[in-house]
Structure formats: structure tokens, C-alpha cells
Amino acid sequence: MTTAETAEKPTTHSVRAQRKAKARISEGKRQERKLGWLLCAPAAFVMLAVTAYPILYSVWLSFQRFDLKFPDQREFIGLGNYWTVLSNDYWWTAFGITMLITVVTVAVELVLGMALAWIMFRTLVGRGLVRTAALIPYGIVTVVAAFSWRFAWTPETGYLAGVFGEGAPLTERASSLAIIMLAEIWKTTPFMALLLMAGLALVPDDLLKAASMDGATGWQRFTKVMLPVMKPAILVALLFRTLDAFRVFDNIYVLTAGANNTSSVSMLAYNNLIRGLNLGIGSTMSVLIFIAVAIIAFIFVKLFGTAAPGSEEGGRR
């Protein structure tokens, strides 16, 4: 109201003064922005060198027929490699496996992570011990953990091998996938829990008290008050984990090495690029993975409005 009234009939003098002030401010702002760019220039340069160059080089390679076994046949073929890969059954099987692993592990991790976060958040006695214990799996190198899972499931010697009757679980497709997912979940749930715990800390105590007074049960407090307030943190956690899970490699490499159609897209790219020495096809797959990851990130950021916790509208003061 008041701003509208004062802005209604400004004298020419004050307008000029205002404009002048505005110009001065934006001049200062521009200087500041320039300094900002200068200050992050070194970091930006390093980033460009270590990420942009390899990415662009992969893209360049993906447009060529380039197999190190037949180096003489190197030739620019445009989108030919893409056609080859996208019309190939192996690619789509790997893609399906990757999606399956991503969806299942992230969903399970979200639920378990939330429970774990809640426990870590609420424990009053031995808080440090509980948190440390919960984070141990995340502290172990993935490959090491994967090897220990492999030994655990090895017939005769492994301590888990006999759990589901006789047979070698890592030699069948379904059980192999289940074990891969189990290893993934075991390993990264603590990370999820850690991100979600940051979200839990965002929920003010008074809000939960108010909900109790308003007649909410424990479950209603969780679903109607805590989850919405935590939404930004949950989305960030989901985004991180989805991108991570989509690039699953270590566990598969160690546990099955892709046998019985358990390869993920990363596994397939590795096999073509490093084992098969087919730089063209391998690079094409890498670029496709890159595109898929970008699409996932885009969906999260644009469609779900994922942002850093606290920067969302509700979190603003």
C-alpha cells in the first residue's frame, strides 16, 4: 500500500536521484560480479580441463569407426555408432538391468535410509556410537565390500551360500541380480540416511508439537508435516543416489563380471571400450550414459523442483 502511494507521484527530482542511485548500485554490483568471476576462474579452468575435455573427446570418438584391433579402418561415420548401439539387444538388456537396479535400490534405500536417519536422529544414549556404526558400510571401499560379498556367497566356503538351499546363487540371473542389489543397498543406505538426517534437522520441533496439539497421530505427523518440510532434502538425496545407482559398476564387476546377462550399461561400455578396444562403440555408450544421467538430473531439477535444502520457497524467511 504505502509503496504504491509513494511511487504514485514522485517528483522529477526524486526520480532523477533514484535513477542515479540505481546506476551507482548496479555499477557496484557489476564490479562485484566481475570479481566473483575472477575468483572462481582458476577452479572453472581446472574443471574444464578435467571434465569438459574428456567429454568432448568422447563425443568426437563416438562419431568415428575406431577399433584398435583394426586401426586402419578409422573413419568418420557420423551417427553410425549410435545406430549400431541403439539397435542392439545387448544394449537394451543392459539398459533394462540398470534401470531395474536403479529403481529398486533407490526405493529400498529411501525407506531404510529414512528409518536409519530417524534412529540416528532420535537416539539419546550412545548417539556417537550409533552414528558411527551406521556409517561403517559407507566407509568401506566398494570393491572390497563386493569381494567380501562374493566370498560370502561362494558355495562350500561362503557363510551365506547355504542360506537359500544348495546351488551357487551367483551363477543364476535372478539371484545374482538380487545379490548385486543387496550389496548396493547395504553399501549406500548410510549415505542416504546421512542426507535425510540433514533434512530431519530442518523440521522445527514446534511444528511437530503443533501437529500433536492439532490431533495428528505419529504417522500423520510424519506424512503430513515432516515429509513435506523435508521434501527438498529428500529430493536431493534421491537425485544423488539415482545418478549414482545408474552408473553401477563395481559390484557387478566383482560379483558376476556381467555373466548371465547381469551387465549394466557402464559394464557394457567398459567391456567394449577397454576389453574390446573398440573406442568408437565404447565412447558412444559412454556418451549415451552421459545423456541418460543428464536426463535424470533434468527431470529431478525441472519437474520435481529439486534444489539445495533451505533454498526452496518454504525454507526462505
Binding site: 522445527p204 514446534d206 508439537k209 501437529a211
Partner: peptide, 12 residues
């Protein structure tokens, strides 16, 4: 019913 110093309104 209770009224809090922080108002405790549901932000969403």
C-alpha cells in the same frame, strides 16, 4: 489448542 511463540505454521 496451543499457540507457539514461533507460530509453528506448516510451511507447505
Amino acid at each position: 489448542a496451543m499457540v507457539f511463540q514461533s507460530y509453528a505454521l506448516y510451511p507447505n
